Simulated assay, not measured.
Amino acid sequence: MNQWQGLAEFVAVAETGSFTAAAGRLAVSVAQVSRQVSGLEDRLGAKLFYRTTRKVVMTENGGVYYQHCRSLMDGLAEAERAILDLQATPRGKIKMTAPITYGEESVMPLVNDFVLQYPQLELHCQLSNQLDDLVTQGYDLAIRIGTLSDSAMMAKKLASRTRYVCAAPSYLNRYGIAHSLAELEQHNCLVGGSDIWRFQEAGKSRNIRVSGNIHCNSGHALVDAALKGVGLIQLPDYYVQAHLNEGSLISLLDHFREPEEGIWALFPHSRNLSPKIKLLVEFLAAGLGAASHNN
């Protein structure tokens, strides 16, 4: 037996003094209101209203019952408001992951600003270049760069990045400017996590194996070496854009540059995307998108 059945109809009649007005408030038929109230009276074994052709008046039992029902309805409304407030005001735990360098330089400053706005959030962020499984690791959100291959995820594009080949003016003054991909073998190419540099030629992807006297998995270390005139580097814009803007690095082979890569927010299909995650993704899209447009 549903103990809530008929309560909304009873309260509406008690407060409007009319079955017709109650039906209008609840957007149901008068017959349904009458049927629900009659069923409630039968269940309670007590008359709740005196009905005449002119008016409806609560009985003494009806008056007592109304006070309790009104408290119950108010409590239900308060519970619903609490849930709506919880959804509207981001709070609770968010577990996310992002690539190490891009996470340090671009993602986490924005996330920190977001948490500053919503201090009731508890953020757990793992910066890693490993492509962890979001579902098994319990992540709500992942930031990924480049081509996406996991169809089990939902994705939203946040921004884009561009890879640049560049060198310091001091290096170029000594060794000259590379004008073709074939000329790369004549230059000291500083190697990061891979000795394959990626380009596009005549609309097709080209992978070029390069070599040099420095191998290091730190983009910042390679930028420092390039700024000191050691050799050429190929790195994403967030490493080199400021140096390109000020002229301390010069971009090369621009007509062989690959198209921009997407930067994505990923969420598991199986996980309900809560308002706080949606709000964080929108915040990141605004911040990262603005940064990529300014590059």
Rank of each mutant, 00 (worst) to 15 (best):
R91L: 12
K204I: 08
R81G: 04
R163H: 15
L26C: 05
H269V: 14
I250S: 00
K156C: 14
L279K: 07
L244D: 09
L141S: 01
C216W: 02
G289N: 03
W264T: 05
L273Q: 12
I94C: 03
A142I: 06
N112D: 15
L222Y: 09
S106G: 07
E9W: 02
N272H: 12
S29C: 05
R161E: 15
L253N: 04
P169G: 01
V57T: 08
A159C: 09
D150Q: 03
G289H: 01
G192S: 05
G203T: 10
P90E: 09
L141A: 06
A77C: 05
A142N: 04
H68C: 11
A23L: 03
L44C: 02
Q234H: 13
A23R: 02
K276G: 09
E104V: 13
L227P: 02
G75V: 09
T89V: 15
L181E: 00
A168N: 00
H215D: 06
E104S: 10
E104M: 06
G63R: 11
Q120T: 13
E60V: 11
E104A: 14
A221F: 04
G193V: 02
C189F: 10
L253R: 00
F114D: 08
R81I: 09
D140W: 00
N213W: 07
T20V: 01
F114K: 01
N129Y: 02
S218T: 02
L158V: 02
L158C: 06
A178F: 01
L134K: 06
D133K: 01
I250V: 13
R91T: 15
S218I: 09
D224N: 10
L131D: 11
F19H: 07
A286L: 12
L86Q: 14
A12H: 03
I214V: 14
G289K: 03
V240C: 03
F19D: 06
F283W: 10
S34V: 10
Q3T: 15
V281Q: 05
N207I: 04
T136V: 13
H269F: 15
